[in-house]
Design a protein around this nucleic acid. Structure first.
Length: 535
RNA sequence: GCGGGCGUAGCUCAAUGGUAGAGCAUCGGCUUCCCAAGCCGACUACGAGGGUUCGAUUCCCUUCGCCCGCUCCA
């Protein structure tokens, strides 16, 4: 399937629009049209229902180590700035970067060091990314090359001062960038803040600075104690949340795949450390099955376990659910969801302060004065098991899914072209969105075969009754074949047609989107029949 | 952010230094008893800003957006 065909259909039929399109669009932001919003809402509703609403905490789910409970949460997009400092996002997302116009390489401004050197009446600053100890070799080699000197003439280089950080060097035009041959190729340092910044308070300055959340998960961690204290949930239990998140992606691309404003469906599952690996396995398998049951059953979906060397040492497993999107190169997959075993990293970080993920066992990250780099809340987020009396910090399994990415994958998977005969029996190409009935934006369409002889009246009445089961559509205009094809493009699974026979024996036909087969049912049974088929 | 390509109607495309045309779609009417039928009619576009010019959709610059490659990807 070519991606541009799907993009064209989504625009034409109202699944997806570029945000602010009449003003030229805005990079990395997308709107869901009337069909798209139904589809995405159905995806989110299916997730919420399957993970939380319909979960039976009295029964042990297949593959689960024990019974478990599930509750929901809806927290704010803007949170206390300390949340992001302790979570690690602030440090990781916040850098000054410089680009080299010659080599097209990008560097973290604070990682470039260098040394002034003079030769042939010219004084330049030779920059390097080499580790301490190899810096002098690196800059000498580059300086010799720049001044066209031989190694034996190294004494002609007059070094001025010791190594210093590039930060503080004002004469940018005299800087020889780490991978450049000419001077002054570095851009001004630019702040790369992958988190969206905002300001709290109508008049506030920097002291009111805050961020739009880059993930919904932290809201669950910081509410862990509230949930335990208010709901009588017992470990093991999970907290689910659906909501918008924001990331300043450097290169938003590939349709809605990498959007700057996007929606997540996340679960933080809290369990005893001794059972955490089994729960990880459970969620990994269960989440994969969820996609297959909604129609991503083909080879384009895969479950990929991270290699041991990709894992943080505090994690015993991470797996990605990936889909081979048509816009990716052959053999490449894009992430729909990550399931991560996160140990007690998150709860401890919000208790004690930001932990250093490179320590084992985990230790508090310290600044140059030996103080905590970012202070935690100081609140006790441990859990006491009322039955055993044991107190511990729960381990966390995090299935984190992208609602927009899942929606896009369902759209890609659904797009199908097949051949169907037209009125004269000639085969015509038919575009049909084979969406699973649970997520299809329109559940059924009702047509009078022709707009006369009392057929519209019968069809309109049936339409009214069908409204009770979901989004249905009524159409009496033009040829019936065209109406069928229109519904095929919208992914409507069933079309119900009132014809001449309906008037005699009170029956209608139900036409199946995928097989084109029609079956005749009594009008009075029609609502129940459609309801059955949609499940 | 860098390099390259592109931007004309809802969609897919065309033409042109003298202000744009088609197919499909959409809407209205007629017709029509099962898969994009037919007839009549209607609506709709040069991404934005500036410059050159008597005149710019066309040439130039800037900007925004899209695609490809590089970079980035917690």
């Amino acid at each position: 399937m070519e991606m541009d065909k799907l993009v064209s259909l989504c625009k034409r039929r109202g699944f997806l629009f570029q945000s602010s399109e009449i003003y030229g669009g805005i990079n990395g932001f997308w709107d869901y049209g009337p069909l798209g919003v139904e589809l995405k809402r159905n995806v989110k509703d299916a997730w919420w229902r399957d993970m939380i609403g319909s979960h039976n905490e009295l029964l042990q789910s297949p593959g689960a180590p024990s019974t478990h409970e599930m509750v929901g949460l809806d927290c704010t997009i803007i949170m206390h700035p300390q949340v992001w400092k302790c979570s690690g996002h602030y440090d990781l997302f916040h850098d000054y970067m410089v680009d080299c116009r010659e080599s097209n390489k990008r560097y973290r401004h604070d990682q470039i060091r260098g040394r002034w050197v003079e030769a042939k009446n010219q004084k330049i600053f030779v920059a390097t990314m080499a580790p301490v100890g190899q810096e002098q070799d690196d800059v000498q080699r580059k300086a010799l090359k720049f001044f066209h000197l031989r190694a034996k003439n190294a004494d002609d280089l007059k070094w001025v001062g010791d190594f210093v950080d590039l930060i503080g060097i004002e004469q940018v035009e005299q800087v020889l960038a780490p991978d450049a041959k000419t001077l002054g190729t570095l851009t001004e340092p630019r702040e790369f803040n992958l988190m969206f910044k905002t300001y709290i308070g109508a008049l506030s300055g920097e002291e009111g600075a805050a961020q739009l959340r880059p993930e919904t998960a932290q809201g669950i961690f910081v509410n862990f104690k509230n949930i335990v204290d208010s709901t009588r949930v017992r470990i093991p239990f999970g907290v689910g949340q659906i909501g918008k998140s924001f990331r300043n992606e450097i290169t938003p691309r590939n349709y809605t795949f990498r959007s700057r404003e996007f929606e997540q469906m996340e679960i933080e599952f809290f369990c005893h450390p001794d059972t955490s690996h089994k729960w990880y396995q459970y969620w990994r398998d269960r989440r994969f099955r969820w996609y297959t049951e909604l129609g991503l059953a083909g080879e384009r979906l895969q479950l990929r376990d991270h290699h041991a060397d990709e894992l943080s040492h505090y994690s015993t497993g991470t797996a990605d659910i990936e889909y081979a999107f048509p816009f990716l190169p052959e053999g490449e997959y894009g992430e729909l969801e990550g399931i991560a075993h996160r140990g007690d990293f998150d709860l401890r970080s919000h208790m004690e302060g930001k932990l250093d993920p490179n320590t084992n066992p985990l230790e508090l990250e310290k600044d140059e004065h030996g103080k905590p780099r970012w202070r935690g809340s100081g609140k006790d987020l441990s859990y006491r098991d009322d039955l055993s009396g044991e107190r511990y910090i729960p381990h966390v399994i995090e299935p984190s899914a992208g609602a927009d990415r899942a929606t896009l994958a369902f759209l890609c998977e659904a797009y199908t072209e097949d051949q169907a005969p037209d009125e004269k029996g000639n085969l015509q190409t038919r575009v049909v969105m084979k969406l699973h009935p649970r997520i299809a934006p329109v559940k059924a369409a009702v047509f009078p075969l022709v707009k006369k002889d009392g057929m519209p009246e019968v069809a309109k009445e049936l339409y009214g009754e069908l409204k009770a089961i979901g989004n249905v559509f009524y159409d009496e205009k033009g040829a019936v074949g065209r109406r069928y094809r229109r519904q095929d493009e919208a992914g409507t699974p069933y079309c119900i047609t009132v014809d001449g026979q309906s008037l005699k024996d009170k029956t209608v036909t139900i036409r199946d989107r995928d097989t084109l087969e029609q079956t005749r049912v009594k009008i009075e049974d029609c609502v129940e029949e459609i309801k059955q088929r949609l499940q």
